[in-house]
Amino acid sequence: MIVGKRKPLPEIIKAVEPYEKVLVLGCGECVTVCMAGGDKEARETALALSLARKKAGKPAEIESHTVERQCEFEYLESARKKIEAVDVVVSLACGVGVQTMNMHYQDMLTLPGLNTTFMGLPVRQGVWMENCIGCGDCVLGETLGICPIARCSKSMLNGPCGGSQYGKCEISKDVDCGWHLIYERLAKFNRLDVLAAVRPPKDWSTSHSGGPRKMVREDVTL
């Protein structure tokens, strides 16, 4: 899923300073699951903003609402009345949701209330880790399910580098060395032979390096 972290409150307060009517808009998908931008967080944020404005002697009308999915136009329609009634929207969705809002409601400004951190999974309650950078050319089949692009700090295809010690990455004792994990996984499946081949440079053109990506599938277009 997409993992996010709500922006610090002072940053949001500052962003909505010029506005009198604000809608904090949550999203019912990924950011709800990672407890950063769902209905609960939208309510809390609206309340906190409202209090802050009162304290500052500049009270404002701050509402909250949550749509099922902010990254698709059709789900945004259900909130049209609420959206058109305010001066500005603070979206607690990921960066995709914020942009979907701005594309769909072109006369309304939607500001980000959340930092989109990464694509990943909750390894346990309250802990999320990055697993995929969406490079557009999956190699998980060769590395037996551990991504060297996302899980190696240097995105090496022929790792591990000389900074891997005791199973940890040189950047932090809290970060596992992705290539150490790959090594152990290959050993487990008797596939250490995979490491012998010099893997050629990656084609980064399928990643963001190739420019903003767009996908068209003729078989499903209407």
């Binding site: 700090s153 240097k154 995105s155 090496m156 295809l157 022929n158 790792g159 580098c161 000389g162 900074g163 040189e170 950047i171 010099v198 893997r199 050629p200 440079p201 990656k202 980064w204």
Partner: peptide, 24 residues
């Protein structure tokens, strides 16, 4: 060489390029 991660240096917020690795 691969190179130490940028976080160790005096430009810790720099983008780490790593287009190719040391083997490549």
């Amino acid at each position: 060489l691969q190179g130490d991660h940028a976080k160790f240096g005096n430009e810790p917020t720099a983008k780490n390029v790593n287009d190719i690795d040391s083997m490549q």
